[in-house]
């Protein structure tokens, strides 16, 4: 299994552990991810788009064109990049005028894009290309004692015209993966409720309130950790958790792990290799529960 890999800005900076753990489990599962050489910002959901839509779509299209040259679909780790690149793909397909404008821009760079590739999230690859069976074959440490709250958030499963590998209202892809690893999924309501990450830089108080509600419902469902597949959600839920606690005077202390880290733990991979020492809310207590 070989794919063009679009890491996105966060995975190269604040979310390195997501990239590390993704690489580690890909090696075990025989997934070959080849980073798109000279990739650029995906185009952003809204920050550049609201400023100048064609600019945002052209930035996406440059990445898509580079990936198309590699002859494979694009895989992203970030839900926001997944949405932005897919949206560009869809809009260029539907709107010939827009496609013409973007073609002009790409032409100046001696690039072209035929629209022949798909943008996919790594979770989709795990579930539908690798398959649950192969994942379960590699489980060395069943996560028997672990109660997890799979958190899907927004753009991983929505809108259905773009993110179509799972159900938008009741997604189950991560739940299925967790079951295969031996973990128990807790029943909680907010698994697709927006965490507010896109507001954390500009409207921190609003974003923190959204994050708080989510963290508390997972905590009240007696989860040992939240599992996420997006660096934006992770930053908000993990790195900002201390701010949620101090702003609202609540005690949460709930580890937030990347799906790739949880799979890596079950595969018996090294804690350092999975970057578990980089999570802000320490997962060490949780690991000792699993006797790691």
């Amino acid at each position: 299994m070989k794919y063009a890999f679009f890491p996105g800005c966060a995975v190269h900076a604040s979310a390195k552990e997501y990239g590390m753990s993704c690489k580690a489990i890909s090696k075990v599962l025989g997934i070959e991810l080849i980073e798109i050489p000279e990739w650029n910002c995906c185009g952003s959901i809204d920050a550049i788009y609201a400023h100048n839509p064609v600019l945002s779509i052209s930035l996406s299209a440059r990445n898509l064109s580079l990936a198309e040259k590699m002859g494979t679909d694009v895989i992203t780790l970030c839900s926001a990049c997944f949405f932005t690149l897919s949206r560009a793909n869809k809009l260029m397909h539907e709107d010939p005028k827009l496609k013409g404008q973007v073609d002009n821009v790409l032409g100046n760079l001696k690039l072209n894009y035929n629209g022949e590739i798909k943008v996919r999230h790594f979770l989709d690859v795990l579930l539908n290309d690798v398959g649950l069976e192969k994942i379960s074959e590699n489980v060395k440490v069943p996560l028997k004692e672990l109660r997890v709250a799979p958190y899907y958030g927004c753009l991983l499963v929505r809108p259905p015209e773009i993110a179509n590998f799972d159900e938008p209202e009741h997604p189950t892809s991560m739940d299925k993966l967790m079951e295969v690893l031996g973990a128990t999924n807790v029943n909680y309501l907010d698994k697709t409720r927006c965490c507010g990450a896109s507001l954390i830089v500009t409207k921190e108080r609003i974003a923190l309130e959204m994050t708080k509600n989510l963290l508390l419902t997972a905590k009240n469902a007696e989860a040992d950790c939240i599992v996420t597949a997006c660096p934006m959600c992770h930053f908000n839920l993990d790195a900002m958790q201390k701010d949620v606690e101090s702003t609202f005077d609540v005690d949460i202390n709930l580890p937030v792990l990347y799906i790739t880290q949880v799979i890596g733990i079950a595969f018996g991979l090294n804690v350092k290799e999975l970057g578990l020492n980089r999570n802000c809310v320490s997962p060490m207590k949780l690991l000792s529960k699993l006797k790691i």
Binding site: P160, C194, L199
Partner: peptide, 19 residues
């Protein structure tokens, strides 16, 4: 317009398909 987080819950549920 500034608070909308583009989470697409509304558009996913809109019975009239408004983005």
């Amino acid at each position: 317009i500034w608070i909308c987080a583009s989470c697409y819950t509304c558009a996913t549920r809109c019975p009239r398909g408004i983005d």
